[in-house]
Amino acid sequence: MMSPLVEWERVTKTYAGHVAVEALRSTSLSIDRGEYISIMGPSGSGKSTLLNVLGLLDTPTSGSYRLRGTETTDLPEQVRTALRSQVFGFVFQTFHLLPGRSVLTNVELGMTYAALDRREKRSRADEAIERVGLASLRNADPRRLSGGERQRVAIARALANQPELILCDEPTGQLDSQTADRILGLLDELNQSSLCVVVVTHDERVATSADRRINVLDGWVST
């Protein structure tokens, strides 16, 4: 039986300061390949911290984090960075698309730091754009796209490097309900093709679209 993609054991994250903030308290969880998980909690509950530690953007203060069976907490920074690039794709609430560049070059940005030649990058970018249904807008300026189209570009960028897990931070936060439903439908399709999807949200409707829910409150995680 394959080991989980992600295994946490008593992971904590404390931010030092005048008053220390325990953003995550002794969290243990596991995520299998191909799962669709929502992380739900109110603002300030620690869900963003959970996502950042999960995505190797931040390091735990204590505890064990195994990714693909490898302990990550004692890895050098460049190895963590490389692992992040290989395993994770990121989708943000505010899209984070670069202005002045086309949809294609924005999607290719997802592979900038991967060891791929230009032809391979172009091929993967086209494939990802096709997968999110934006082939006709390949050369468009993202500033001219709707919110839903921009988020699909961001998802294509996350897919381009062929990650094992997509981390989405409030992916429908800037969208109307109809557009949000389309994005959730796309994430569901991606999950159906065996991609692991983790969505952080405070929206109940978004949370129920996932197969499993993780609740976060005041740094405490319950699965």
């Binding site: 995505g55 920074e77 960075t81 984070h96 940005l109 997802g110 900038t112 730091y113």
Partner: peptide, 16 residues
Amino acid sequence: ISEIGLRRALGARPRS
């Protein structure tokens, strides 16, 4: 700043 954060998330090392 947000672009730099994005690049770091995508795998850019500080020296990149």
